[in-house]
Design a protein around this nucleic acid. Structure first.
Lengths: 231, 231
DNA sequence: TCCGTGCTTAGTGTATACACTATCGGGGAC
DNA sequence: GTCCCCGATAGTGTATACACTAAGCACGGA
C-alpha cells in the first residue's frame, strides 16, 4: 500500500477506536516516526483527516484529535436524517427488490446474543449500507453518507449499545429494508426517521448514564498520549 | 498565502470558470511550474481537488478535470434537495427572524436587468446562503452544502440563466426567506423543494437548448489544453 | 508480418534538507 | 517585582533529489 494511504488508514482507525483519544496532539515528526513513513505522506494523511473533521489544527503549530460532544452528535444526526431519508426514498424507487427483501429476512432472523453474534450483526448493517449506496446510484450522496458514517463510528463507541436496543434496531432495519423492497418510498423514509430518532435517543440516554456513573474511561490522561512513540 | 492554498484556490477557480475544461489533464510538474509553486504543495492541492470531486485520477499517472453530465446534475440536485430542505427546516426553527425578513425584502426589491445587477443578485444569494449556514448551526451540514455548491458553480455555467427564470428565482427565494423569518419550517422546506424543482427544470431545459443549437463552446479542443503552460 | 521482450522515458511517490515562524523562557530595565 | 524584549528551539512549509512504476516503442525472433 502507498505510504500516505497506510498512514491515513492507521490514524483513522486509531482515532475511531479511541486509541488516539480526543485532544491527543499529533506532531508530524513523531507520528511519521511511529508509523514508519516520512513527513510528506504523513502530511497528506493529516490533511485528509482534517478534511474529514477527525482532527483539527488548533493553532498553526498544533493539530489535535477533535472531540465529539453532545452538540456534535445532535448535528451529526440532523444531517444523517436528511441524507438517509433521501437515500431510503431513492432506494425505494430504484433498488432491486429481491436484494432488500433478502436483507429484510436477515434482519428478521438476526440473533443478538454473544460477542461474535454482535459482530455479525454489525457486518449485516454494513452490508445493508452497501446495498443502499449501490441502490441510490448517487456518488455525491454516497460520499456525504460515508463522511457521516466516519464520525458515527466514534459516537457508537461512546455509547455502548444494550441488547434491547439492538433488538429494536434490527426490527427497525427490517422494516426499512422491506419498505425499500416493496418500493414504498414514504414508508422507507418514515421508518428511517423513526429508526434514527430511536437511535439518537438511545445514544443520549447511554451518554447520560455514563456521565452519571462518573465516566471512568472517557477521559484518559492526555499528557501521556501527547507523545505516542511509547505506545 | 500558503503555496498549497494558493494552488488549490487557483486551480479550483479555473475549473469552476471553465478555464480548465472537463477532460483537461493536470500533470504535476507542468502545473507546479505554471502556478509558481513546487510539486509538494501542488500535490496537496490536487489531493483536495480529488476529494472535492473536481478532478479524478483516471489512471495512476493521469489526473483529469472531471466532467459534469446530466446524470451528475440529477445526482447533485437529489442531495441538494435533501440538504437544503433540512437546512431550511432547521433555520426556520433557529434563525433570527429579523435577518431573514430583511433578506426577504431584498429579494422582493431585486431588479435583474443589466450585467452588474446580475452580479449584485448573485451576491445577494451568496449572503442568503451565508445566513442560512449561520442559522442552522451545524458544521457537518454546512460542509456538505459547501461541497454541493462547489459543483453547482460549474452547473450554473453550463446553463445560462434567462431573465424570466431569475425573476422567478428571486420570488422563490423571497418566499423561503419569509418562511424562515416566520419560523414556518414546513413552508420553508416545501418552498425550497419547489425552488429546487424549478431550478433543475430550468437548467435541463437550458441544456437541451444548448445541445439542439450545436453546443458550440461546450467542447473546446482538449488537445491544446493538455499542456496548460501556454495558457 | 506479428508477437513478445527489453529498454527508455515520463511521471508520480517518498525522503530529506533547508528556511521560516511562532512560542516559550530568561534576562534586563524600569 | 513585574513587564517587555530578545534569543533559542521546536515544528511546520516548501523545494528538490532520488527511486520506482508503468507505458510506449523498437528490435529481434518465430
Amino acid at each position: 500500500m502507498r505510504a500516505g494511504e497506510h498512514a491515513y488508514r492507521t490514524l483513522r482507525n486509531e482515532i475511531q477506536s479511541g486509541a488516539l483519544p480526543a485532544g491527543a496532539v499529533l506532531v508530524e515528526v513523531e507520528q511519521a516516526a511511529r508509523l514508519g513513513v516520512s513527513r510528506t505522506p504523513l502530511r497528506e494523511a493529516l490533511g485528509r483527516l482534517v478534511a474529514d473533521g477527525l482532527v483539527a489544527q488548533q493553532s498553526p503549530r498544533v493539530t489535535v484529535v477533535t472531540d465529539v460532544d453532545r452538540d456534535d452528535i445532535r448535528a451529526l444526526f440532523e444531517i444523517r436524517r436528511a441524507l438517509e431519508e433521501a437515500a431510503a426514498r431513492l432506494a425505494a424507487a430504484r433498488a432491486d427488490g429481491a436484494v432488500f427483501a433478502a436483507l429484510a429476512d436477515e434482519f428478521g432472523e438476526a440473533h443478538l446474543a454473544g460477542g461474535e453474534a454482535l459482530d455479525a450483526y454489525y457486518r449485516l448493517i454494513a452490508r445493508f449500507d452497501e446495498a443502499l449506496d449501490a441502490a441510490v446510484e448517487n456518488d455525491y450522496l454516497t460520499a456525504a453518507l460515508g463522511n457521516v458514517r466516519t464520525h458515527l463510528v466514534r459516537v457508537r463507541r461512546l455509547a455502548r449499545d444494550n441488547p434491547e436496543r439492538l433488538e429494536a434496531s434490527a426490527a427497525e432495519h427490517r422494516l426499512i429494508a422491506a419498505a425499500i423492497a416493496a418500493g414504498d418510498a414514504d414508508l422507507a423514509a418514515h421508518a428511517t426517521h423513526v429508526h434514527l430518532h430511536n437511535a439518537l435517543a438511545s445514544i443520549l440516554r447511554s451518554l447520560d448514564a455514563a456521565e452519571a456513573a462518573g465516566d471512568p474511561a472517557a477521559r484518559a490522561d492526555l499528557a501521556t498520549l501527547t507523545h505516542q512513540g511509547a505506545a
